[in-house]
């Protein structure tokens, strides 16, 4: 169902909710690296709130940012193609193209894209895996580089997924048997493992098929529909016109009148229509005649 197929070179994240201590160093690192204010960072914390009865209390959290879907809805939706999915698996945002229609914000099943609401001319805020760092030779994104507990690790997407399953398999009972992001929205490049159900962390329950696929089913049909409608309308027009001409000529021959020729068929049709409309004002009849 996905338009993109894996080439083995995609980057990915593995985020382990059992390791996150909610220190928010990743938010600060993101804010500094990408020069965005703290209230519109590209990364934030999802958390369960305090669970259980005293003294057995627990609270889990996990950093949350763009999932970098295999078949991203935002890329499908973006009016001007400012959002693109690269061969490296990164969903990038071209801030020089964006017109601020905010369709991507509604299209994203994970409610990831944020907006600079306070700006006069705002832009979308969204994780791009610190793509400039990657190309500058820094090996990993700022959030993963900063995380003191290695709750966020970064690498080849296939390695991240393998590591997620390895941790679940080797620590029986520690994690839910679910790698969030493996099938969500048709598969993503960000994988989560967690000791508690993802719903408790406030993660959305995304379908296994990306809505982008269903969107393309319709939008790819557009040229066909356009052609069919134009051809259909033209044939209806010509068929009825031909019929009207034939009738008009038939009548003309029968009455020996000087009927309108073929290239004035429209006039002929209107002419026959006028007597049916005795209440038309003179102006209209004069104009049509």
């Amino acid at each position: 169902m996905s338009e993109t197929t894996s080439n083995g070179n995609e980057y990915g994240f593995l985020i382990d909710a059992s390791r996150c201590i909610d220190c928010r160093a990743c938010l600060v690192a993101c804010s500094v690296e990408n020069e965005v204010p703290m209230e519109t960072t590209r990364i934030w914390i999802q958390e369960t709130g305090v669970q259980g009865e005293f003294p057995n209390l627990a609270r889990f959290s996990a950093p949350y940012h763009c999932m970098h879907c295999d078949d991203p809805s935002c890329v499908s939706a973006c009016t001007v193609g400012a959002l693109q999915k690269g061969d490296d698996g990164i969903v990038t945002y071209d801030q020089d193209r964006c017109i601020g229609c905010r369709y991507c914000m509604y299209a994203c099943p994970f409610q990831v894209p944020n907006y600079e609401w306070k700006e006069q001319l705002p832009l979308i805020v969204k994780c791009d895996m610190c793509v400039s760092r990657l190309s500058d030779g820094h090996s990993i994104p700022a959030c993963a580089a900063t995380c003191p507990t290695d709750a966020i690790i970064f690498g080849k997407k296939s390695d991240m997924l393998a590591e997620a399953h390895r941790r679940i398999d080797q620590n029986p009972g520690k994690f839910m048997n679910h790698v969030y992001g493996e099938t969500e929205n048709g598969g993503t490049a960000t994988f989560y493992i967690s000791p508690v159900p993802f719903a408790e962390l406030g993660f959305p329950a995304a379908d296994e098929a990306s809505p982008a696929y269903f969107n393309r089913l319709v939008t790819h049909g557009t040229p066909t529909v356009a052609g069919a409608v134009a051809v259909g309308l033209s044939s209806v027009y010509l068929t009825i016109k031909h019929h009207a001409e034939a009738t008009a000529q038939g009548v003309g021959a029968a009455h020996g009148q000087n009927q309108a020729g073929p290239n004035e068929a429209e006039g002929a049709v209107v002419g026959t229509a006028v007597p049916q409309n005795p209440d038309l004002p003179q102006a209209a009849q004069g104009q049509e005649a």
Binding site: V80, R97, I99, C101, A212
Partner: peptide, 16 residues
């Protein structure tokens, strides 16, 4: 940048 829809097409986008 309203005119950007004229020069940056995304044929998958209904809004385009």
């Amino acid at each position: 940048r309203f005119y950007h829809f004229l020069i940056y097409p995304n044929l998958n986008s209904a809004l385009f």
